[in-house]
């Protein structure tokens, strides 16, 4: 691979790989699938070079290629997409991702999660980090399943507000 071209590809990958990977996970790819499809996405655009107008347009273009790759995979595996409305989901993701693939959002979110205290922090650890079900988390936290559901809803609301504050 010529050095210049390799460098172009490397820069493209380093700038956009997280955004593409997150998008693929969001529209229903598993972790390993997202790894493979992210790779295929970059290899495809590398074979068909394009002009990069700006980061946002490039990110959108990469997402489109990634979506096609994912849909092909679903067809091949006779799977149905987990996300009902892919267009709406893609629009939502582009709002989240902005022009950095969601890095700024994730940084803010990490800070907000670190600031959680008490039961809010505990439920995030049990449900999201350790991967317990709501029922299992309820047992762990000696709460009802409904109580966990409410707590999770409140935690997500609080995190959303916190992230919005940080990104303003």
């Amino acid at each position: 691979m010529a050095t210049d071209h390799r460098q172009e590809l490397e820069e493209l990958v380093r700038a956009h790989q997280r955004g593409v990977w997150r998008y693929l996970r969001y529209i229903g790819a598993g972790n390993a699938e997202a790894d493979d499809l992210t790779q295929e996405t970059f290899l495809t655009v590398w074979k068909q070079p394009f002009e990069q107008y700006d980061q946002k347009a490039t990110a959108a273009y990469l997402r489109q290629v990634a979506k096609n790759k994912f849909l092909m995979l679903l067809r091949a595996q006779k799977r149905r997409p987990e996300v009902n409305d892919l267009d709406a989901a893609t629009q939502l993701f582009s709002e989240f991702a902005r022009d950095d693939g969601g890095d700024a959002h994730m940084l803010a979110l990490t800070g907000c999660i670190e600031a959680l205290q008490g039961k809010a922090k505990q439920v995030v650890r049990i449900y999201y980090y350790e991967g317990h079900s709501r029922a299992s988390a309820a047992t762990e936290m000696q709460m009802t399943e409904e109580g966990i559901k409410t707590l999770l809803r409140r935690v997500k609301d609080a995190l959303r507000e916190c992230v919005e504050r940080k990104l303003k």
Partner: peptide
Amino acid sequence: ERDRLEDLNIEEAVGRSTPPDLAERIL
């Protein structure tokens, strides 16, 4: 869709499912 995105984001923020560095592999 919003819920799904938020759930995935929190999972990533706590380190359960984070985007890997695929640069070397892709190159």
